[in-house]
Amino acid sequence: MVRGVSFDVHTGEVLALTGESGAGKSLTARALLGMLPREATTDGTVLLRGTAVTPADRGRRIAFVPQDALSALSPVHPVGEQIALALRSVQGLSRKDARSRAQRALAEVGITATASRAHPHELSGGMRQRAVIALATVNTPDLLIADEPTTSLDPATQDTVLTLLRERCTATGASLLLVTHALDAARSHADHIAVMYAGTLTEYGPTDHVLNRPLTPYTTALLASLPTADTPPRTRLATLPGRPPTPGETTAGCAFAPRCPQATDRCHTQQPEPRSLDNRIITCHNAALETP
């Protein structure tokens, strides 16, 4: 369902993995985490800082922040205790050292000593997600994967939590793979962006280049369908015919061909392969740099 996806997350940078639901964002993220359902088959390697990630050290080198903070936290222990426990089991700290280190980790995400004694259900959604960020970064992973980490928060809190997430990654030296369907979040927080459609990575490159000057028809169409501050109010937005393919649905050619305004004959019969173009990687037969 996700096919031939290759990308780099540079050390210390933020890469946004974006696309509509069913595009394969979460599946890609979970493959990296080794959390795929048993019936899934995987192939390919994950290299972190030049060394392959083995199942044994995956848990230590890759951390995860899910959409639902409650699923990452134990309901029965105060959040401070949970972080101390993670420190003791991974870094072998003493009980006392772990406690003070956990306190510091929580302070760094804006959680007071009093709040660190609260159970997850006693905290607001935003506070809970802060606690998860502290938990995910406390053992200094190489890569942090956050899957729609702010979707359940209100708009004002979303940006604050994303900013904090990015700060904590920078401070601990972790790279961040931010899985998000929200292009504005990607725009303000990611160095690079990878746009997926139907299990394929359609366009990858520096965020501002991809979002300001998309080269593939899918990125172009996606951007055109979103109203921005410059869109005249109440005008009709650009839409695409049809719908995204359901996961597992296969086509002979490009998966986007049935909806693509630029499709040519070849698009319906031959699957495009990823290729480099300028500073991007694109998967499209027809995309080309405009000649000025």
Partner: peptide
């Protein structure tokens, strides 16, 4: 999804 949202917004306007 983004590509379907635009369609519903257009429908509401129409």
């Amino acid at each position: 999804d983004a590509s379907l949202r635009a369609g519903i917004l257009n429908l509401l306007l129409d």
